[in-house]
Computed example of a mutant assay.
Amino acid sequence: MQAGLKRLSMALDDVDEDIDGDVPEEITDVEERALDDDHDGIEHIERRTIQYGSCGSTKLPPGMREDSAYRWLSFNKRGIGEKALALKHLFKAPTILLYAERSKRDARKYYSNSLHNGVGDAFRHALFSYRVTKKYGSSIAKQFGDAHEVSHVNPLNERLMDLYNNQVGRCLAGIRGNRSKDDVSVIKAAISAGRLQTSLDRSYPGTPACCQYGK
């Protein structure tokens, strides 16, 4: 179990690392699920954007205070970490690991030159969240995306970029018309349409969040 959790951590990490083992071309039994109704205010935001078909059209406002930006994204910086969350969802964690590995592999395939804080990074986060939402719903996808950001403390502007792209991926998965489309094609189309954040917002400080929190 510990080895599995370690692989989940590596697969979700922003640093480009090799993943051991082959990842299957397809993960079967991908269920069509609507967004959950029971997880934080972000669910209401996502349902609203889905209603108007505008996932990613509302950008994170620049230069907000850190706590305000987190509220905008419904993120708790002191929330549960990914290892504890994986233990809480023992039967879901292995499939979520496969989604993380597949998304990282796909990012390397299509955007090998921008895997850190670039287009490939945005693609990977959105694709992972998109896939988990299709399988388990938006609530689980948000919990695992947030838990990774809690466990891996990045500079603030990097963390906000990751959280935003996770949000867009969840939103895209809630659009009924996307459910019959290829996952990669949906996220690539979102990139082409300017829906994802593909570079750091310099209006936010790059100071490591650990230092800001005094940890």
Rank of each mutant, 00 (worst) to 15 (best):
D162M: 09
G174T: 08
A189Q: 14
N165C: 11
D201G: 12
S151H: 04
D162S: 11
A193D: 14
G177E: 12
S180T: 13
H152R: 10
V168N: 13
D162Y: 07
G177M: 05
T198K: 12
L172N: 06
P155I: 01
D182A: 14
Q167K: 15
L160C: 01
T198R: 10
Y164M: 11
G194F: 03
A193L: 12
D162C: 11
S192D: 12
Q197I: 10
D201W: 07
I175F: 00
G174S: 09
N154T: 03
N154A: 10
G174K: 08
D183T: 09
N178F: 00
M161C: 03
N154L: 14
L200I: 11
C171H: 05
D162W: 07
V186Q: 04
D201Y: 07
L196D: 07
G194W: 04
S199D: 10
N178W: 00
R176L: 08
V168I: 15
N154Q: 12
M161A: 10
T198W: 11
A173G: 13
G174L: 05
R202T: 14
I191Y: 03
D183N: 13
H152C: 05
S199M: 08
S185Y: 07
I175N: 05
G177F: 03
I191E: 03
A190P: 06
V186H: 05
G194P: 03
S180A: 12
R195G: 00
L200H: 04
R170K: 13
L200K: 10
L172M: 15
R176I: 06
S180Y: 01
R176C: 03
G174M: 06
I175C: 03
T198Q: 11
E158K: 12
C171N: 07
G169I: 13
G174R: 06
N154I: 00
V168H: 14
T198H: 09
I191V: 14
A190Y: 06
D183P: 12
R195N: 07
R159Q: 14
A189G: 14
S185L: 13
K181A: 13
L200A: 04
L160H: 02
H152E: 09
G177K: 15
N165I: 05
L200G: 03
A189M: 15
S192L: 06
A190F: 06
G169Y: 10
P155C: 03
S203D: 02
A173S: 13
L163F: 12
L160M: 02
S192W: 01
D183V: 06
R202W: 02
C171L: 09
R170N: 08
R195C: 01
L196G: 06
L172Y: 04
L156T: 04
L156R: 02
K181H: 11
T198F: 09
D201H: 13
G169E: 14
D201I: 06
Y164W: 14
R202E: 10
E158L: 01
N178K: 04
L200N: 05
L163P: 11
V168S: 13
D182I: 14
D162P: 07
E158C: 09
V186P: 01
I191G: 02
S203E: 00
R159W: 00
N178H: 15
